[in-house]
Design a protein around this nucleic acid. Sequence first.
DNA 1: AGCACA
Length: 253
Amino acid sequence: MSAEAEAGGGGGGGGEVNGVQPNVTIYINNLNEKIKLEELKKSLNAVFSQFGKILEVLAFKTLKHKGQAWVVFEDVASATKALKGMQDFPFYDKPMKIQYAKTKSDVVAKADGTFVPRERRKRNDEKPEKKQKREQHHDVSQGGLGMNAYPGTYGAPPLSQLPFGAGPRVMMPEIIVPNSILFVQNLPHDTTAMVLQMFFCQYQGFKEVRTIEAKPGIAFVEYGDEGQATAAMNALQGFKIKETPMLVTYAKK
DNA sequence: AGCACA
């Protein structure tokens, strides 16, 4: 009988990468080591949640684990899309290198019932104490099981659906005045400027992203001229960082 | 370069 090497099932299909079998968890290295862990994890979450529901993002600051992270998805299909879609993606100025994780993540093993406490397998068993802390997985409730946006390549994300009626009420159509500054709305409230920059800087003429702490969910992105701003707007219109498509318009002058 | 679960 053949043991399923897949950690977590899900039936994603697809072959091994670098001799590692598909896993719900991806292993990322070549990450920028200057980024603080908390920010790194938030940004990874922001950048990867477009591929499916994320159960956990792990990164450590120890010497042996600098520049590396694990992103645990709910299913293998999401992990595979993430691996393929974000391979070499410039993240804090360094191309991400992504593989499937070699072993099953604890969070998955716990859900599985196959979890073995770490004292058993860690060679560094300096703490034989067993602490039992309750764990709550209060994940952001998002319909991650349905269709998730798979943008394919980042050079040309799809203009899948333009969220014209995205707000609670549709405003009167305004006269559109092109501007080299874009106004971005409907962002997840924890979206950082760094994360936005990673998307918007891919287009010609990118200058900067500005977020406003007091106003989460929106941002301004400036380009060298209106034509460049327009190209970026068309490319990223409706792009989903999480489940809600972003709305990109010209900023008011 | 480096596959963990602070």
